[in-house]
Each structure stands twice: as C-alpha cells, then as structure tokens.
Design a protein around this nucleic acid. Structure first.
Lengths: 161, 161
DNA sequence: TTCAGTGCAAAGTTTTTGCAATCCC
DNA sequence: GGGATTGCAAAAACTTTGCACTGAA
C-alpha cells in the first residue's frame, strides 16, 4: 500500500500540504527534536510557517503513526520517526542524546512483564545519566561546579531546568 | 551529623521555616508528586502557602540533596525523597506509577557503561509502558493487536499531554 | 466549489522573577 | 536588627484555541 505521507493522509480523507511534508522532513533530519527545533528547521526553508502549524502537524503525524514523541530530560517532548526505534540515553549534564538498540531493555521488559504485568515500551522515554565526555570532565577538571556538597554525591543533580 | 532539615539548612546558613518543613513532609507523604500536587497537600494544612514558595522550596531541597525530581510521562516533573530510590514505571494509558527496585536496571547500566561510557542514573527518568490493568482492558475490548499496534491508538487518558 | 488547513492573535498552563513585608536566628 | 524568606503580582515560557482567509482535491 501507499506509504507516502500523501497516501497516508488521503486514506483518512486528509490533505497533503507543503507544511506537512516540511515538518516530516525536519523530524527525519533532526532525529529527535522539540517542536520548537522542528519549527526552526522548517522555517529555514519556509519562513512563513507558523509554530502553531508545527504543533498541530506533529500531533497529526503522531496520530497517523508516522512520528512518535518521547520525553527526554526536561519538559519538552521530542519527536522522531516512528520506525526510528531505539532507547534514548540523555546526559543531564550537557543534554546530549545517545542511542542504544531497543534490545538493551528486552531483559528488563521480560522482568517487568513477569513481575508486575507491566508492558514496557522501551522507546517512549529516555534513560538519564552522564555521558562519556561529562564523566571525564568531572574527573579531569573539578572546574566551576563543586556544588554537590557533602550530602550524597549521587549522579542526578542539576543539568535540568 | 544532624540530618534534620533544620540542621541541613543551618549548615548552609539557611533558615528553617514552617513552609519548608511542610513541603518536605508533603513530598514524603506523596511519594512522587508534581509541584502542584505538593502545593495542594501543603495548603491542606496551611492554606496561605503560595505555589511560588513550593517551587522555590523544591528547588532548594533538591539542591540540598534532600529530594530529587524525575520526569514521569508528560512534562511535569515529580519530586520524591532522595533516598526513595527506585525505577518508575509509568503507564501512559492511565498515568499510574509502579515502582521497581533499581537493580532492575543494573545489567543495563553495566552495558551502557561498557558500550558507550554512559553512566546510567536509573532513578531519574521513568520507563513508560502499559500497566496490568490497562493491558487487560485492551484484551477485553478486543480489537486485536495488543502489542505491536502502538501505531495510532495510544495515549488514552491523562497519561500524556 | 468545498471544506480541510493555515496564519495570526489571543487565551491557557506552568514556572520564574521583582519587590516590599515578614519573621527566623 | 539584619538578612533570608515569603506572598503577591507581573512576566516569561510553552501550548492550545478561535476565527477568517487560503488552497488542495
């Protein structure tokens, strides 16, 4: 069957527009991006496109199953192609997003299912932590942020908000 | 050393106030709650407390290492006691939050560290999926494809957005 | 031609900031 | 008493909604 965006839209009685194609292209190119990032990308080509349209189009594309969103680090959701399935690893120091195959969580998925009956969707939410570079920075230079006092030098701390 | 809130504050030259105690109590009682939920809980006892104060106090408590926040499902962060470490399993149908021991992810943590140098913080972000009850509901109401068909019909209730 | 789709402006939400009054130490 | 804290109001950031115009089919 027709798997183009146009085809998918027509099957539902919806219409193809340049804006929709641009939004989808932007999502594909960016990998995983917030609505605002998508908007910027789109506006690089078509400055007139409104952010409202981007929001509406992302919602629509998600409803169509063409894209999906995941909640990385802070509040802003990020959109990516639906087929582009992988586990997100977000560094909450620098915000960088690594990717890992979904198989990474298959054992965990089995366990949550067996133990709690919980069907894990590995791609929807990101795992959080510290990336290679930031871990190194911590070791090397004890630069400007010794903030973590005596309390409990746990991993998670700032990097957010 | 003094591990009371008052002690922790004084060690940093900060002051103890009833509001701060109330916010901390609320976080403890609620387990994991959004700033707004914390505020409601606090206002049940002290109606005059402003939400602004709740936000500021949560930030402060986090900086002190007393509480931490995690990003469950949608945008709103939820706060919990720092010691209260576990993996969150959020159902994106009903919004329910299950908990699992952090050991659940220890193998995964080893692998991300070995493969990518990524230090996983298991407690910061929730895993997303479908809880037992919602999975059952799906079966009952039939209509096939309980697993792979996360294509279009998801995000039912208040789980998202 | 028709009505889905868009842009613009205004309204919501949620969180942050400025400041004078308050109250902890 | 002095300065950290608070409450209130306004601002900022992020999304959604209403509506008249535009354009895809």
């Amino acid at each position: 069957m027709d798997s183009t965006l146009k085809g998918t839209l027509h099957r539902r009685g919806l219409r193809m527009t340049p804006q929709r194609q641009l939004v989808l292209d932007a999502v594909r190119e960016l990998g995983h991006a917030t609505p605002e990032q998508v908007c910027s990308r789109v506006q690089a080509t078509a400055p007139a496109v409104n952010i409202t349209t981007v929001y509406r189009t992302l919602d629509l594309l998600e409803e169509l199953g063409v894209v999906r969103h995941a909640h990385l680090g802070h509040g802003a959701p990020t959109y990516s192609e639906h087929q582009h399935r992988h586990v997100h690893l977000v560094c909450h120091h620098c915000g960088r997003v690594d990717e890992a195959p979904t198989e990474l969580l298959s054992d965990v998925a089995s366990r949550t299912l067996a133990d709690l009956g919980f069907h894990l969707d590995a791609t929807h939410v990101a795992l959080s932590g510290t990336c290679v570079d930031c871990a190194h920075d911590d070791e090397d230079s004890a630069d400007g942020a010794p903030e973590q006092d005596d309390t409990a030098p746990q991993e998670g701390a700032e990097g957010d908000r």
